[in-house]
Structures are given as C-alpha cells and as structure tokens.
Simulated scan of single mutants.
Amino acid sequence: MAAVTAAMVKELREMTGAGMMDCKKALSAVDGDMDKAVEFLREKGLAAAAKKASRIAAEGLVKTLVDGDKKAVIVEVNSETDFVAKNADFQEYVAQVAEQAMNTTAADIDAFLAEPWALDTTKTVAEELSSKISIIGEKLSIRRFAQVNAEGGCVVAYTHGGGRIGVLVEAETEVVNDEVKEALKNIAMQIAALRPQYVSRDEVSDEFIAHEKEILMAQIMNDPKESAKPEKVIQGMIQGRISKELKDFCLMDQVYVKAEDGKQTVAQYMQQVSKAVGAPVAVKKFVRFETGEGMQKKEENFAEEVAKQMGQ
C-alpha cells in the first residue's frame, strides 16, 4: 500500500475542497491514486466542487462586522460571477463566514478553514464551503479575513459599492462619541477611495525608501539632461519625488477628500476633530479589502458561453 503523504493530502484538498481527513481516507482507500481519490470523494458527495477547482473566483463580496466599538472583522469571499455575488443565499453565507471570523482564534486562512463550522460543528469551515459550492454551482473561495481589536479607543467599518470594498479603521482616543465615529467614517471613505498603503510616514521602512531612491536614480541617469545636473541637485530631485510619492500613499499626508479648500490634509482634519471633541483622536490602523484585488478576472463572452452550453 502506497504511503499517503501530507503533500498528497494537501493537493487533493486543493483540487476538491474536501476536508483534510476525508482526503486522507480517500487516498488510503485507493492506494494513493489521485484521480481515483477524486472519484472516491465525488461518489461520497464530498467533491462536487472538483471540476470547478481550476476556475477563477475573482468576484464576490467583502463583509464587515462590528461588535460594539471595540472589535471588528472584515472578510472577502469570492465567487466566479457578479450574478452569484448578488444572490441572497451567497450573501447570507458571506454573513455567516464573517460571524465565524469574528470569533475565530485562527492566525491564518488555512487554520480558519480547518476549524469547526460554528453552525454545524460536525463540519469544518472548508467542508461547509465545499457544500456551498455544490449548491450554488460556482467555485467559491474564502480568500482572507482580518480582526481588529481596539483596546484604547474604537473601531468603525465602512462598506462601499454594495460590498465591493470594505474598510476598518481603528483609532486611539479617550473620547468615543458620535462625532468621533462620524470622523472615522469619513476617514474610512477616504481609504476606500484613495487606497493609501500606510497610516503615516513612520510606517514606511528604510528599505522601501532606499529601493525607491534606486529606481529614481536610474530614471535620472537614463535622461541625458537630468543626469548632467550637479549631484546635490539630483539628490534634491530624488528627495522631492519621494516626498510626492509619500503624499499619495500615506494616509495622513493625503489631501482630505472633503476639504472645503482642497488643501487640508487628513492629518490636519484629525487635528481639527481632536480639538472639537477635546481629546486627541489618532488613526492607529486600517484594513482595506477590495473584491478580487490582485487577481486575474475571467473575461466573459456571453454569446460564446450560450453556444458552448448548446453544443454549437
């Protein structure tokens, strides 16, 4: 009998969406034959999703939940099509995944998928996902989640575009009232719209700055006019360009989108809020998820799809 390795179990799980133990049992039952193991799981009703494993699930929903002012979670659950993303059953399932993520102690997505499904502890999260794939008829994927615990302040959530973008913002403050939460909601909208990467320049690593300087220096050296300038001038140009970049992707440096004068920065807006509520209010952290971000989306041709289904 062929030995069943962890790598084999992992491969079968990725192919079928079935649980770890089910994959191990299937491989053991068929002497390690991967194709037969897939069939074994399909026969048991555990791998109806196998034929969908190679599809791209880049649509879906981002869901946020907030428990009081102190704890929040954000999840991204993907589907293949926007049509399914708007389906009530799928949306209910995403809400259940968010509830699961709110209470999980898992440190990563693999541990999350392996834990018991809260609504039916005889299944794992991965097994419930596989069941949903069978019912809905598309490849689904729980891509990522993040929890925020605001011990010294509060956390707010914002969802844009019907679940296309979700944002959590954590702030340090001794005052938690409607005015503070409204201000943080404004900041969350800013983050959704302008995609900052950092809260402030303090979070930008020296390695990142050094790498950007190398790129900018190469650009200057490739320009005969700019490369002929004195070294001091070139260094000033590099510093100025880096400063401009930081204004784009550091939240506190960005121009506040609701600024009446078009000049007020987010940092200045937060100073204004702090003065109004009589206590410092500082953005500590944010999380921004956008559905399908960084994934290759499948190009659909409706006429071709219909022809294919009709055997033409």
Rank of each mutant, 00 (worst) to 15 (best):
A58C: 08
A88E: 14
M21Q: 15
T64P: 08
T16R: 14
M34R: 05
A49T: 02
M21E: 09
K36F: 00
A88W: 04
V38M: 01
L41S: 06
E43H: 11
K51M: 10
E115Q: 11
T105H: 10
G32F: 13
Q91H: 06
F83L: 00
M34Q: 12
A111L: 15
A50Q: 08
A18T: 08
K25M: 04
N78P: 02
S79T: 14
L61M: 12
K36L: 00
L12Y: 10
A101H: 12
E76N: 13
A107P: 06
E14C: 00
N87I: 02
I56R: 14
D69F: 06
G19S: 09
A107V: 15
A57K: 07
T16V: 03
V38K: 00
W117H: 15
K51L: 12
L46H: 03
K52A: 04
E39S: 08
T16S: 10
E76R: 13
D67I: 09
F112V: 01
E39M: 01
L12H: 12
L119D: 07
R42E: 07
E99I: 03
Q91D: 04
G68N: 13
V97E: 02
Q100V: 01
K86Q: 12
A48I: 08
E43F: 05
A57N: 02
F112K: 13
T64C: 15
A118T: 01
T81Q: 07
F112S: 06
K71M: 05
Y93F: 15
G60C: 11
Y93Q: 07
A26R: 02
K10F: 06
A72L: 08
A49I: 00
A48D: 08
M21P: 11
D108G: 10
E80P: 06
I56Y: 07
E43P: 01
S28F: 04
E92Y: 07
A98Q: 12
A58Q: 07
G45W: 07
V84Q: 05
C23V: 06
F40V: 02
L61F: 08
V38Y: 00
V97H: 11
M21D: 15
K70G: 08
S54N: 06
I74G: 09
C23K: 03
K86D: 01
V94N: 05
A53Q: 02
R13H: 13
V97W: 10
R42F: 03
T81C: 02
I74E: 09
D35C: 00
L27I: 02
A101G: 10
C23M: 12
A72P: 03
G45F: 06
L46T: 05
L119Q: 10
R42W: 03
A85K: 13
F40T: 04
A106W: 15
F40Q: 10
D35H: 03
